[in-house]
Design a protein around this nucleic acid. Structure first.
Lengths: 222, 222
DNA sequence: ACCCCTAGCTTACTTAGTAAGCCGACGAGG
DNA sequence: CCTCGTCGGCTTACTAAGTAAGCTAGGGGT
């Protein structure tokens, strides 16, 4: 019996470990590299063994969606709505940046429990802050769209570091492109190539603008 | 028998027809159903014949991305920036609603010419309207994120008609779910189930809020 | 008349998801 | 202590999809 507990590299395996391994694999090699066979390897197991713990690959992807969702900060009551929304948005964007596959798996899932809980909590926070039902609906639609869209675009950017960004920008601006896209070229030269340009700051700017707008709308309706 | 009947239904086939057939197929049966073999069938041709016109499936998907992008209204100079941005946003959202696979193919492409042209034109419109380079960057980042995120969420909704929405909402609110998600239940009851609820109106609300915010930001900077 | 170019075809290999069934170890009951 | 059912993991094998390689027929240019 020492075979089992003696810290063999092989603990029993379960749905949760499968999902976490899937997330790791997707983080490391991209979502396309997440195949049942590779996932098996990752866990020292044959592909078909995974099916004892998940029904099929779709269930793996659904599980990943709930994993990412779990990394979003839920609103808490001890802070105002604005701070609660900000935290949720920032944490969501961070989670989706950590896991570039996040946007993909989220967009293929019909709402699971984690999503519903998240949503309910957001609406609750807004309602308590004096938002009407209708305005609360507008608010979360707007916020979620922004965060989500931002994350998608960020995930599809073909670079990971600021250095790569300037390099790429430079190569796009090369030669005739600058003539074909004068405004892009201007922006590239005056903004993106400037040392200290922080792409992440973009997110905060839009977020505050949206929050300002929502606050104004709530006050106008009051 | 003349395998190749003169003026048979078989015109020569080219990259463009391949792409349009791909779009049709994806519209009809979903992006997952878009396989090289099915696409071949669609055109009365073997799968491998397609490779005379496209290098590989990725190129088909890239082509689809440019197709959708082509359905976005470019800003024109004869209207103000606000109208130009609104038109672009509305047309983009409409295109992405017409082609639910649009968000998927757009997010996997590094910027092609259509994208760059589109972007350049947007920035130009904003610059002419008095936006600084920096603010123009914020503006299109915000607008695109919103439109894009909205479209993604819309595409992932598990229903197509308002009737299906109310039905689904009702089923979610059924039984204990209402207790688990009180705020969602409230919103479902007071808003979504109301006759005449128009989900599309959501989009316009957020869009105007964003445009208001941008206008204010520009005026403040002036 | 010849020849070659091109669009489309045939074959076949590879990777992936997964259905079906096998097997060894472990714990409970006789 | 032996046995047997169960459960986790394995083996095999089938199917769908992308695509590499090479074939061929028919039409146009020389």
């Amino acid at each position: 019996m020492p075979t089992r507990p003696a810290a063999g590299p092989r603990s029993p395996l379960n749905r949760d470990r499968v999902l976490r391994a899937a997330a790791d694999l997707a983080d490391r090699d991209g979502l396309a590299a997440l195949t049942m066979r590779k996932l098996g390897q990752e866990l020292g197991v044959e592909a078909m063994s995974l099916y004892k713990h998940v029904a099929n690959k779709d269930e793996v992807l659904d599980g990943l969606a709930e994993l990412v969702l779990g990394e979003f900060d839920l609103p808490t009551d001890d802070v105002g709505w604005r701070q609660a929304m900000r935290r949720r948005a920032v944490s969501a964007r961070a989670a989706l940046a950590r896991h570039p596959w996040g946007t993909v798996v989220l967009s293929r899932t019909r709402p699971g429990p984690a999503m519903l809980r998240n949503l309910d909590s957001v609406i609750g926070s807004l309602r308590r802050a004096g938002f009407s039902v209708e305005l609360a609906a507008h608010a979360f639609s707007l916020l979620d769209s922004y965060v989500y869209g931002y994350a998608v675009q960020e995930a599809s950017l073909p670079f990971d570091t600021p250095a790569e960004l300037t390099e790429l920008t430079a190569s796009i601006m090369d030669g005739f492109s600058a003539a074909a896209y004068p405004h892009l070229a201007e922006m590239g030269a005056e903004l993106i190539m400037k040392p200290g340009y922080d792409h992440g700051e973009q997110f905060g700017y839009g977020l505050e603008l949206v929050l300002d707008g929502l606050e104004r709308a709530r006050d106008a309706a009051a």
